[in-house]
Amino acid sequence: MSKQKGAKDLVPGGMITEAGNAREYETGDWRTEKPDVDHDKCIHCFFCWAYCPDSSIIVDPEEGKMKGFDFKHCKGCGICARICPKNAITMVSER
């Protein structure tokens, strides 16, 4: 809470004046289940990357490989697990 700005330091009108700021809003704490990937089953088809609504699949474009998840932003929706053609992703409880 301490890093939040006070009323006098805000842009009048409440506009956001920095581009690409959505990454600063860490939505990962909305999650109740998180995806877990079995790298032995993964064929790096990138379906999960294409379907993820939050850009939370980490890939290495040089290697052409799926590396894991951005848990600061992954909301745990489970779309990646549902779309995976090899059932390499499973949702596990975080409780």
């Binding site: 939040q4 009108g13 409440g14 506009m15 956001i16």
Partner: peptide
């Protein structure tokens, strides 16, 4: 680029209204 009228919840809406 600027964003007008973004979602503004319990963390900042009150400060924006004060302003």
């Amino acid at each position: 680029p600027v964003t007008y009228g973004p979602l503004d919840l319990f963390d900042y809406y009150f400060e924006h209204k004060w302003s």
